[in-house]
Design a binder for these strands. Structure first.
Lengths: 177, 177
DNA sequence: CAACAATTGTTGTCGTCAACAACAATCTTC
DNA sequence: GAAGATTGTTGTTGACGACAACAATTGTTG
């Protein structure tokens, strides 16, 4: 869950969903389908939380990916690093459960993170089935940088919906974290 | 955008993300990774809007899929039907742009919807490149039922986060619809 | 009006992600 | 110790977004 979100690899420049005006001044006779975007009624959709949340989530992930683009870290990777950083020694199962990621999926995520030498899988002394996850030294310093960029992303969010709204949002959704 | 969201085909019964207690009373000596979920710190993640939004979006889509499971309608399909129903005669381009779906993706969505005889693609009289999208009679009555189920889903959302919070959320995110 | 550019629907490819299923190695439990 | 559960792993399926290319059909412009 923390993961998902199929974002564009190439972050789109057009950040937004701002209403677009203009485009062919609304003439008299408009044929089928020839309607300006803004005029297209959403109908019941406008009252659906899921629709709004979905579009917001897309925007926010795109901005995250763009903002952390230079360091090539996606939201899921960031969430994994953060949890491991805050809880060294966790098993893959524990991380997966905490973040709502499938353990099958976490395998690949960790493969990549381990290849980049940000995370290391140590064999657990007490349970030889499981791995104890740790950040490498490199991972720790890298995460510090990621955090700064993530904070910048969070400022973008605040700019987009308003500082107070962002906090209200976090409060409303606190049960889901 | 309206689309995306890879949901489980088989809606999970456990709706939630409620904190789970218990599981092996926290003994004294806990080894690596042997930590109760609730104790695992999220650290910076807790302050990230994207993380909360993502988990909420997953919950909400799962509930939508489960609630509309009997009629086999997913969020994206519902959004397409709603927009076509509210704006008969729209071209595929117009629908795609309005919902933020790729037109390539909409092709498949409409193929499925047309096969189920909920939507029909009529050749536009004015632009022979494009299709004028309409709901079939069957589609209109079906959509009415979908709407009732979607309203039920929306009530689940209200139960989950609170009636007032849901409305506050819709207001905060209104710019994204 | 004819050449060129843009749009529309379509097909296909690639990459991300969630859900499952199966498996070997390793605990746990009875 | 045998049966059952858990952990990490691999592989498959399906929804989805991004892209690229294409034919058919406008539009635009010299």
């Amino acid at each position: 869950m923390a993961g998902n979100s199929q974002m564009p690899k190439t972050a789109k420049s057009r950040a937004g969903l701002q209403p677009r005006f203009g485009r062919k001044q609304a003439g008299n006779g408009r044929s089928q389908g020839d309607v300006m975007d803004d005029e297209i009624a959403l109908d019941a959709l406008a009252g659906h939380a899921g629709y709004a949340v979905r579009r917001f989530q897309i925007w926010i992930f795109q901005d995250f990916i763009r903002t952390l683009g230079a360091v090539d870290i996606r939201p899921t990777q960031y969430s994994v690093l953060t949890v491991i950083g805050a809880n060294p020694g966790l098993s893959q199962m524990a991380v997966a459960k905490r973040l709502g990621i499938e353990r099958a999926r976490l395998v690949h995520l960790l493969d990549s993170l381990e290849q980049r030498e940000l995370v290391s899988r140590l064999r657990s002394a007490t349970d030889r089935r499981s791995h104890a996850l740790h950040l490498t030294a490199r991972g720790r310093t890298a995460l510090a940088q990621f955090r700064r960029l993530a904070a910048e992303h969070e400022r973008h969010v605040a700019e987009k919906i308003g500082k107070e709204n962002r906090e209200r949002l976090l409060q409303i959704l606190s049960a889901f974290t």
